[in-house]
Amino acid sequence: MKEPNKLTTQKYWETYYSKNHANKKHIVNVCSYYDPFWDQLISQNSKGKSIIEIGGFPGRYLAYLSSKFGLVPTCLDFNSDESQIKNSFEIMEVDRFNILQEDFTKYQPKQQYDYVISNGFIEHFDDFNTILDLHTQYLKPGGSMLVMIPNKRYLRKIYGYLCDYNNLKAHNLKSMKLSVFKKYAKRNDLKIKTHQYYGGFPFSVHQKQNAFQKVISKTTRLVFKKINPYLMKNPSKYLSASIIAIFEKPINVE
Rank of each mutant, 00 (worst) to 15 (best):
S80Y: 04
K106F: 09
F57I: 00
G48C: 00
D114Q: 12
Q112S: 14
S43I: 01
D95T: 02
F57M: 05
A63E: 07
S80P: 04
S66K: 06
G56H: 02
D77Q: 01
W38P: 07
K110M: 14
E90W: 01
S80C: 06
G55W: 00
P73T: 00
F57L: 00
K49W: 11
P109M: 09
K49S: 13
T74M: 10
G59C: 10
L100E: 10
D114L: 10
S50C: 14
G56D: 03
V94L: 00
L65C: 07
N98C: 04
Y64M: 08
T74C: 09
P109C: 04
K47L: 06
K106D: 09
D39Q: 12
S88R: 10
Q44P: 14
Q108D: 13
I85Q: 05
L62N: 04
L62H: 00
Y113H: 12
D95G: 00
S88Y: 12
P58F: 05
S46W: 08
D95W: 04
N98A: 11
S46Y: 11
S46Q: 07
D103Q: 11
K68D: 05
F97Y: 15
Q111K: 15
S88Q: 09
N79W: 01
F104K: 07
C75K: 12
S43K: 13
V94Y: 03
Q108R: 14
I91G: 04
G56I: 03
E53L: 07
F78N: 15
K110H: 15
T105K: 10
Y115F: 14
